[in-house]
């Protein structure tokens, strides 16, 4: 199973955010991290793949052109966890996960919806929140619930937009190890992460988006380098290995003047 992105361009209205991006195929069983500075277009690209933003070019899952699928058919095979979290609705956690399963009207799994939703909450270790109101949750808890909504349909492709941004250290690890297990079931996972050490530890490959295109793609050790950090992020950085052999990224400062205009570009743009 593989996800193909070829010559993909997308943006908002007339404004292009991603221009002619191609990626080596993403394979099932693998976790790929999408990284890059603020406003590089990571969320936009994820939305295009999820069918939430118009695009040109080819995005195909196992040769099946995703643009040709109806919304319910796409939702059956693609799970998307957006960066923005829902504001308070008077629904409890279990209800939202059941809704994620039933909203499209397509049957994605064979089990009864309630049982399936409960099993997903158990799997993510948030079953105790099942009957808690969505508007009573902390940001991190809502993030876990949002992940539950994305995986409940057992999608073949899982897209996660900054899934760990509100999580404490333990839950970052819990979420990412769960994401690894989901990938190991034979699914494709593409996730946006800002923390490159975390990305290096938990993903098989890293794609760096920069200036509307792909800057680098490959195994973490090849991609996360002081040169890349300098050019893309405009920071002075060291990349070292810890005693366990994992990559560690140490940021020492900003490059004066902001290399490649990363600082200037960021102004007025949302993360």
């Amino acid at each position: 199973m593989s996800l193909t992105l070829r010559d993909v361009s997308t943006g908002y209205g007339r404004r292009r955010v991603i221009a002619g991006l191609s990626l080596p195929d993403l394979r099932s069983g693998e976790v790929t991290t999408l990284a890059g500075p603020n406003a590089a277009g990571k969320s936009t690209l994820l939305k295009a793949i999820a069918g939430l933003a118009p695009f040109t070019g080819q995005i195909a899952l196992d040769g099946q052109d995703l643009a040709q699928l109806s919304a319910p058919a796409r939702a059956k095979i693609v799970g998307f966890m957006p960066q923005s979290l829902p504001s308070g609705a008077s629904l409890n956690v279990l209800e939202t996960v059941i809704t994620a399963l039933r909203a499209s009207g397509e049957r994605a799994v064979t089990e009864p919806p309630e049982t399936r939703a409960m099993a997903v909450l158990l799997r993510l270790g948030i079953d105790h929140l099942a009957l808690a109101g969505l508007d009573q949750l902390s940001g991190g808890q809502r993030q876990m619930v949002s992940l539950a909504q994305a995986i409940v349909r057992a999608p073949r492709l899982l897209l996660l937009d900054e899934p760990t941004s509100a999580l404490d250290l333990a839950r970052q690890v819990r979420l990412l190890s769960e994401v690894r297990r989901i990938a190991a079931e034979g699914r494709i996972v593409l996730t946006v992460l800002h923390d490159l050490a975390l990305a290096a530890r938990w993903s098989d490959r890293i794609a760096i988006l920069h200036k509307g295109g792909l800057y680098a793609f490959g195994p973490p050790a090849e991609v996360v380098t002081p040169a890349m950090l300098g050019e893309v992020y405009g920071v002075i950085a060291r990349v070292e290995r810890c005693s366990q052999g994992h990559l560690m990224v140490q940021i020492d400062g900003e490059i004066p003047g902001g290399a490649s205009g990363a600082g200037a570009k960021e102004r007025g743009a949302q993360a």
Binding site: A71, P82, P86, T96, A100, E106
Partner: peptide, 13 residues
């Protein structure tokens, strides 16, 4: 009610 992005991600037009 969970937001437009979420709903569309669930397959709602």
């Amino acid at each position: 009610r969970l937001g437009e992005e979420q709903a569309r991600g669930f397959g709602v037009d």
